[in-house]
Design a protein around this nucleic acid. Structure first.
Length: 947
RNA sequence: GCCUCGGUGGCGGAAUUGGUAGACGCGCCGGAUUCAAAAUCCGGUUCUUUCGGGAGUGUGGGUUCGAUUCCCACCCGAGGUACCA
């Protein structure tokens, strides 16, 4: 019988579906007494282009692991879903008018078909879609929980806003240690009680973990929306590459900065790749130093600065404020007003990109004001300059030109003095920023002290005279949470007097309204401004027509929607109890599944999804809603699969194409040819190429040996490069089992590697050989009837089997799937040579191969007489006894170079081994009469002769 | 610039705590089977060579009986980040 992959795979995919083979068991149902194991893939955005062979790489790896864990007796949760809100469907809606929900539905259907063909063991009964109201109901609910919370630094966790209000009522905010806006003033209990409700609400917004505030945001005019920092790459939008400008807008923000320290510390407790942890660490950007307050001469203003080098405070010769700094208009002298205003305007006009690409140009203006040095009382000129960022620290620096290169360059450019405060250090060419070994000089009470001591002493003195204190600063910014788009979660928020009100949990979800067009309104409001039914009736508790807005019981609803990362920040918890209508997941389910044991996905989510998810997880943990504060114990980044582009070479100014090795000195232009026209030997199918496009119809070809050979180059897999390979085609031609094994065989999971369809025949041939092992030989090489004998296996076959079991267990546990595939090939090659057809070997072999090639394994398992799926068969135990050897073929080296081999018993004493080696004719040949200085013998390993 | 990862045949890659470099597969070469092809099977395939051997894991040093593996310096490639005070 021939190995008919199409029939076998269709059969078992159907079987798994009908028998709900891979549905995970929740507490209370049969099977939940097993230990749990949660294997998760980063869920995809269902794009219109469908999947190419690069996408399922991580899914295949996680599926192998999930299947392996089932064989090992675990109750495995291995779900899949869709991150289905997002820009592409909306952009398509803008162009065509088709509702994004329809586009999304179509794309999901296509994704599902493609995924099903690969034979994944997903539990589809738990599928989630972020755009499904039954799902985003809980995203909205979490948002309201954040709104109703503040961060208490005393208890170091999020607490209910009610506890904050109690504190305000009892003692004002002086004794409250909370994470809040920097411009929050102080008030007493009496003052608090005297505030109006609106005033109270405004103050509380400064403390809430999600808050509405006017902030400087990244505005992308082309997309018509604001973007978070992680959505901007090199100063342009990640999606589309459009310019981004800075703009002040009232937006929802997430107070993620409250969790900066815990997000940093939590990294020590998770098994994640080091580069990913480093990326998060850098993004959070913790730096220790001091806040120093400089009095402005002749005014009541103080300018706080943040510095990591308080030890260099006597080196201050000027200060620089960000042009946007709020004190700039206040302190600028009349004489400098014009110059300062012109400079501010000029910087505001510059885009983020300009500012970034142009780091070399030094610019700035003197404000005319002077600050007072806290220790020397000397006047310090105050400048503004765009090398100081408004968003970092306090938006102002104390400039120490001798110790900081940027300050140095600025001082040089504007002829500001550069006092030297370091012992024995030359600063005539550049600033001295080295800390280690540096001794401070010319610095009053700090003179003669090394860096560490000077830092401590400076902070102590600043605190003593009330001019500053030690401070830890983070680069991490609060995350903007509003998007001026249609296809996202609506906020469960309406406005009374411009102040946000939450819609109660029992009235959620607030469903996305229908709109006529998906563009911003003529007055510049977000697309939801086009909705006619978008007002909240506080009596009926439902969305009603805008015409009814009376600002008494019926109020306008929020027009922004949530960003893409809202729904993806907690979905892993929803999978634990995906169909629950009463809670986001039941306590039982949460306590049982707890966290993700293995998460596989791309490293591009390091500072976005993976940071926001950790933040929400910690918040929900603080509120007692989750049992653990890190959601994924182990995380693996899969590498990208790259495309192998093919190039044909057109002779310039002609329609003649020349084969790669005959270009010689012709001037040619390389043109991408579709990789489907290329065979395993890099030959072009000329007819197919000619029919590809009309312009190639009459093309002429200069061949080599009668063939056209293309050039090949590794590039990202993309439609525009004509190097996309579709997994459906591979499944059709070779089968899903071949695709799965080949993707693993390509190389280590975490590394980028090129796809080359040519190599797949090796893996496909292996599966055919495996099939034949279970069938009697037949002329024609196809394999006859199923034939497995009950006679006991040979010693060699058992050795082959157990060697393979050992290797495969080690490989899977180390996520080294590529080497397992090699081991299977070796095993099948050996068993074929041994003519093994013993059930004793072939039955365990079917099990160990089933995580990789589940369809063929199921088929063979059934033919072996089993009624139940192979998916839950216990993984074979490795038995050392089959691998025990009595002798070893020792490599004999001379000065470390292997020269010949010698078979010796393993239990031979060292002395006898030495005699045996020395007596060997080749030893004498190698030595040519010399006497060896030393003979190294490592029993069971090597023999090395020195001399 | 800084951080991280990587560099091994024509190609993808393998090599346990330092112990036979190039497993396994592709491609290529030769052969069997076939009218022919597909499929299948067998042998060879790092380079070099005077066929004894010699060299060889980005480069140069070091540690060691022995280094792809450990240490130092450098070169190249990929990714992240960037006026962060």
């Amino acid at each position: 019988m021939k190995y008919d992959h199409n029939a076998i795979e269709a059969k078992w995919q159907q079987h798994w579906k009908e028998n709900k083979t891979f549905e995970a068991k929740n507490p209370g149902s049969e099977g939940a007494d097993k230990p749990k194991y949660y294997v998760l893939d980063m869920f995809p955005y269902p794009s219109g282009a469908g999947l190419h062979v690069g996408h399922p790489l991580g899914y295949i790896a996680s599926d192998i692991y999930a299947r392996y864990k089932r064989h090992r007796g675990f109750n495995v949760l291995h779900p899949m879903g869709y991150d289905s809100f997002g820009l592409p469907a909306e952009q398509y809606a803008i162009q065509t008018g088709q509702h994004p929900a329809i586009t999304t539905e179509t794309n999901i259907k296509r994704y599902r078909e493609q995924l099903d063909k690969i034979g994944f063991s997903f539990d589809w009964s738990r599928e989630v879609r972020t755009s499904d109201p039954d799902y985003y109901k809980w995203t909205q609910w979490i948002f309201t929980r954040l709104f109703n919370s503040w961060y208490n630094n005393d208890t170091d966790k999020a607490e209910d806003i009610e506890t904050l209000i109690r504190k305000f009522e009892n003692s004002g905010n002086a004794g409250v240690h909370a994470v809040c806006d920097s411009d929050t003033g102080t008030f007493t209990a009496a003052q608090w009680q005297a505030f109006t409700d609106d005033e109270k609400q405004k103050i509380l917004l400064k403390y809430r973990l999600t808050y509405l505030a006017e902030t400087e945001v990244n505005w992308c005019p082309a997309l018509g929306t604001v973007l978070a920092n992680d959505e901007i790459v090199n100063g342009v939008s990640e999606r589309g590459g459009y310019p981004v400008i800075r703009k002040k807008m009232t937006q929802w923000s997430m107070r993620i900065t409250a969790y900066a320290q815990r997000l940093l510390e939590g990294l020590d407790r998770v098994d994640w790749p080091q580069p990913l942890k480093d990326a998060q660490t850098n993004w959070i950007g913790r730096s220790e130093g001091a806040e120093v307050r400089f009095k402005v001469k002749g005014s009541d203003h103080e300018i706080p600065v943040f510095t990591t080098r308080p030890d260099t405070i006597f080196g201050v010769s000027f200060m620089t404020l960000a042009p946007e700094h709020e004190l700039v208009p206040e302190i600028t002298t009349p004489g400098q007003k014009e110059a300062v205003e012109a400079y501010i305007e000029a910087t505001a006009r510059r885009s983020e990109r300009d500012r970034m690409s142009d780091v070399k140009t030094i610019s700035g203006v003197f404000t005319g004001a002077y600050a007072e040095h806290p220790f020397t009382k000397e006047p310090v000129p105050v400048w503004i300059g765009d090398y100081v960022l408004a968003g970092y620290g306090t938006g102002a620096v104390m400039a120490v030109p001798c110790g900081d290169q940027r300050d140095y360059d600025f001082a040089r450019h504007f002829n500001i003095p550069i006092p030297n405060i370091f012992e024995n250090t030359d600063i005539s060419e550049a600033a001295h920023s080295e800390k280690n070994g540096t001794v401070i000089a010319n610095s009053g009470f700090l003179s003669g002290l090394p860096y560490e001591e000077a830092t401590q002493k400076a902070i102590a003195q600043l605190e003593a005279i009330g001019a500053g204190k030690g401070r830890i600063n983070y680069r991490l910014r609060d995350a903007v949470f509003s998007r001026q788009r249609y296809w996202g979660e609506p906020f469960p928020v309406y406005y009374i007097n411009g102040l946000p009100q939450m819609i109660a949990a029992e009235h959620l979800p607030v469903r996305l309204p229908e709109v006529e067009k998906y563009l911003p309104t003529e007055t510049g409001e977000p697309p939801l401004g086009n909705a006619g039914t978008w007002a909240w009736d506080t009596e009926k508790n439902k969305v009603v027509s805008n015409d009814l807005i009376d600002h008494k019981t019926i109020f306008p609803l929020e027009l922004n929607t949530m960003p893409g990362w809202a729904g993806s920040s907690w979905y892993f918890n929803r999978y634990m109890d995906a169909r629950n209508e009463n809670v986001f997941a039941s306590r039982d389910a949460l306590d049982y599944w707890k966290d993700v044991d293995l998460y596989i996905g791309g490293s591009e989510h390091a500072t976005g999804h993976l940071l926001y998810s950790r933040f929400w997880q910690k918040f929900l943990f603080d509120k007692g809603l989750l049992p653990v504060d890190e959601f994924a114990r182990k995380l693996i980044n899969q590498g990208m699969i790259l495309g192998m582009s093919a190039f044909v070479y057109r002779v310039k100014g002609s329609n003649t194409f020349v084969s790669k090795n005959r270009i010689e000195d012709r001037e040619t232009e390389p043109i991408h040819a579709d990789v489907t026209f290329i065979n395993a030997s890099d030959e072009l199918d000329i007819e197919a190429f000619k029919n590809w496009r009309p312009e190639f119809r009459d093309a002429e070809f200069i061949l080599e040996d009668g063939k056209y050979i293309v050039g090949r180059e590794v590039e990202k897999m993309s439609k525009s490069k004509y190097n996309v390979v579709n997994p459906d085609d591979i499944c059709e031609q070779y089968g899903a089992d071949t695709l799965r094994m080949y993707e693993m065989f390509l190389g280590p999971l975490d590394q980028a590697k090129p796809w080359n369809t040519a190599g797949i025949t090796g893996v496909h041939g292996f599966l055919k050989k495996l099939w034949k092992l279970y069938h009697s030989p037949l002329e024609g090489g196809q394999g006859g009837d199923f034939y497995v004998s009950d006679e006991s296996a040979s010693k060699e076959s058992l050795k082959t089997l157990h060697k393979t079991i050992k290797k495969v267990i080690e490989d899977i546990e180390n996520f080294s799937f590529n080497t397992s595939v090699s081991s299977f090939m070796i095993a099948v090659n050996e068993l074929t040579a041994q003519q093994c057809n013993s059930r004793e070997v072939l039955e365990p072999l079917a099990i160990i191969i089933s995580p990789y090639a589940p369809h063929i394994a199921e088929e063979l398992w059934q033919k072996l007489g089993h009624k139940e799926s192979v998916a839950f068969a216990p993984f074979p135990e490795f038995e050392e006894k089959h691998l025990v050897e009595s002798s070893k073929e020792y490599p004999v080296s001379f000065n470390g170079k292997m020269r010949f081999k010698l078979e010796l018993p393993l239990d031979m004493p060292k002395e006898e081994m030495e005699d045996a080696v020395m007596a060997h004719e080749k030893t004498q040949e190698q030595l040519q009469g010399r006497t060896p200085k030393k003979i190294i013998i490592v029993p069971g390993k090597i023999i090395n002769i020195v001399g």
